[in-house]
Write a protein that binds this DNA or RNA. Structure first.
Lengths: 64, 64
DNA sequence: TCATTATGCAATTTATATTTGACACTATGT
DNA sequence: ACATAGTGTCAAATATAAATTGCATAATGA
């Protein structure tokens, strides 16, 4: 259950895990864990990531 | 910064805070805190609440 | 009046998200 | 061959979400 949507959005925005981590104020490991799946981030972090990548919650974290 | 969307969706579905808490497997206090705002729930809990109320993440937790 | 349901809030404890520091591997370029 | 950027992952510590318990209030019905 990897989060491919987020990884793709990040690569489309041309930012590394470390750059995204800096943008949202967490560590690189946290970004890596979220993309790797099996992780349960907080809502605020999800929102911050969405804003940094110009996406919405549904875009990156919702599956029908 | 209250979460009115969630409270409205819950009332539309005719469930109490306690019933919603049971549906998603948390305590009534956690639901109360989320609706009161100033709280930062986990993504999994947000998703579970959305499913219980037949809404999406953007419906309840995203503001433009 | 009395009981019940629904809600808000606060203190303390428990579970877990996140940090920190480290080591490893794979490109890519010099 | 060497350096560097990007990523995956692990163990231990810290920060905070969530649980637990309890008390208070308003609304409703018997």
């Amino acid at each position: 259950m990897k989060n491919k949507k987020m990884k793709i959005a990040r690569i489309e925005s041309d930012v590394s895990q470390e750059q995204l981590a800096d943008l949202v104020g967490v560590t690189r490991q946290t970004i890596s864990l979220i993309e790797s799946g099996n992780y349960n981030p907080t809502l605020k972090l999800c929102k911050d990531i969405c804003k940094a990548l110009n996406k919405t919650l549904n875009d990156l974290f919702w599956e029908e």
